[in-house]
């Protein structure tokens, strides 16, 4: 599905734009989430085969000829892992944000650049 592919890339770019322009740490994390989501959509969409069903081989699928009737299960499997990992990273990022805010009472990324050169 070319549209979902386009959507995925679009989200990716939008997310990056957010990460690059937003000053608020939480918004940056959100940007990252959007990038992640975009990636996931891209992954899922490449597994799509037009006109085929989900790779769950219950009674609706002819078992003898199953491989001809279902979409690619691998991207689905991969995306699941990717999602979980994305979630994990996001959670950790948010914890960092919380911690940073607790320590410095600021959510602006500009306040965290004393390390340089």
């Amino acid at each position: 599905m070319i549209f979902s592919l386009i959507l995925g890339f679009l989200l990716l770019i939008i997310g990056l734009y957010g990460m690059l322009t937003q000053k608020n740490l939480i918004k940056i994390v959100i940007g990252f989430s959007i990038v992640d989501t975009g990636t996931h959509i891209i992954i899922v969409s490449i597994g799509y085969l037009s006109g085929k069903t989900a790779p769950i081989l219950d009674s609706t699928v002819d078992l003898a000829n199953a491989a001809k009737q279902v979409v690619d299960p691998i991207p689905s499997a991969l995306v699941l892992t990717a999602i979980v990992i994305g979630l994990a990273v996001t959670a950790l990022m948010l914890s960092f944000v919380i911690k940073l805010y607790q320590k410095n009472k600021s959510l602006s990324i500009d306040d965290y650049q004393e390390l340089k050169w």
């Binding site: 990252f32 990022m93 960092f96 911690k99 940073l100 320590k103 965290y112 004393e114 390390l115």
Partner: peptide, 14 residues
């Protein structure tokens, strides 16, 4: 746990 290490960590994560 210092301001430096936290902000470095955040940059690293991104």
């Amino acid at each position: 746990e210092t301001k430096k290490s936290l902000s470095a960590g955040f940059k690293y994560m991104i």
